[in-house]
Amino acid sequence: MDVSITVSDSSANSLYRWLAADPEVSRHATVALGDDREPGGMGGTLEVVNVVLSNAIALSSLLVAVASWRNSRPRPPSVTVEGDGVEIPIEPDET
């Protein structure tokens, strides 16, 4: 299962390192850093962390790791997790 995680700010490198270091995620997934830029496109690009999961059950570990990473941020960014045509936006709490 291929999953893309889009981060609304420039912290995709941080998320990538967090996921790559998580033993539950790295046991069942391949994590790579990419971007959503169109070929030949310019500017305004959101960075993407691409994840290839070995099975659907590993998705729960991935989501827990993403939530843990967001909770560790002083200002949690918006994150969108997309896979198999399903898009899940995760927005910061407005408090």
Rank of each mutant, 00 (worst) to 15 (best):
residue 86 V to R: 11
residue 28 H to L: 02
residue 62 L to E: 08
residue 69 W to I: 10
residue 26 S to C: 01
residue 2 D to T: 05
residue 12 A to M: 07
residue 87 E to Y: 01
residue 26 S to K: 05
residue 84 D to P: 04
residue 42 M to S: 12
residue 8 S to E: 13
residue 9 D to A: 06
residue 87 E to R: 15
residue 5 I to V: 15
residue 49 V to N: 09
residue 42 M to N: 11
residue 83 G to I: 04
residue 11 S to F: 01
residue 19 L to Y: 00
residue 66 V to I: 10
residue 33 L to H: 12
residue 50 N to C: 02
residue 31 V to P: 00
residue 54 S to T: 08
residue 26 S to T: 11
residue 94 E to C: 01
residue 79 V to Q: 08
residue 6 T to E: 14
residue 61 S to P: 03
residue 45 T to M: 08
residue 43 G to Q: 10
residue 21 A to P: 00
residue 47 E to K: 14
residue 55 N to Q: 10
residue 4 S to H: 06
residue 35 D to Q: 11
residue 53 L to T: 04
residue 37 R to K: 13
residue 2 D to Q: 15
residue 67 A to I: 02
residue 57 I to Y: 06
residue 25 V to Y: 00
residue 65 A to G: 06
residue 60 S to V: 12
residue 9 D to F: 06
residue 31 V to D: 09
residue 28 H to I: 00
residue 59 L to M: 11
residue 52 V to Y: 02
residue 49 V to K: 13
residue 78 S to Y: 04
residue 58 A to G: 08
residue 20 A to H: 04
residue 21 A to Y: 00
residue 51 V to C: 11
residue 65 A to I: 01
residue 77 P to H: 08
residue 82 E to S: 15
residue 28 H to S: 14
residue 3 V to S: 07
residue 42 M to E: 13
residue 22 D to C: 01
residue 93 D to V: 01
residue 38 E to I: 08
residue 6 T to P: 01
residue 14 S to Q: 13
residue 48 V to I: 10
residue 38 E to C: 05
residue 23 P to T: 08
residue 44 G to L: 09
residue 82 E to G: 08
residue 79 V to G: 11
residue 27 R to V: 00
residue 5 I to M: 06
residue 67 A to S: 15
residue 32 A to Y: 06
residue 14 S to A: 12
residue 16 Y to R: 10
residue 44 G to E: 10
residue 48 V to E: 15
residue 40 G to D: 10
residue 21 A to M: 02
residue 40 G to S: 10
residue 49 V to D: 14
residue 16 Y to A: 07
residue 41 G to L: 03
residue 42 M to V: 12
residue 80 T to C: 05
residue 95 T to G: 13
residue 66 V to D: 11
residue 68 S to V: 03
residue 27 R to T: 08
residue 63 L to Y: 03
residue 2 D to E: 13
residue 15 L to D: 09
residue 20 A to I: 00
residue 39 P to Q: 13
residue 23 P to E: 14
residue 39 P to I: 07
residue 72 S to V: 04
residue 89 P to C: 05
residue 70 R to W: 02
residue 81 V to T: 13
residue 22 D to R: 00
residue 40 G to L: 10
residue 59 L to T: 05
residue 80 T to D: 05
residue 25 V to K: 00
residue 68 S to T: 10
residue 77 P to C: 08
residue 31 V to F: 05
residue 41 G to Y: 07
residue 65 A to M: 03
residue 40 G to M: 12
residue 78 S to C: 02
residue 52 V to W: 06
residue 37 R to V: 07
residue 63 L to E: 15
residue 86 V to H: 09
residue 61 S to A: 11
residue 27 R to Y: 04
residue 33 L to T: 04
residue 32 A to F: 04
residue 74 P to D: 13
residue 53 L to C: 06
residue 14 S to D: 14
residue 5 I to C: 03
residue 63 L to W: 01
residue 24 E to C: 03
residue 79 V to I: 12
residue 26 S to M: 03
residue 59 L to E: 12
residue 77 P to G: 09
residue 89 P to N: 03
residue 64 V to E: 14
residue 72 S to C: 05
residue 93 D to G: 10
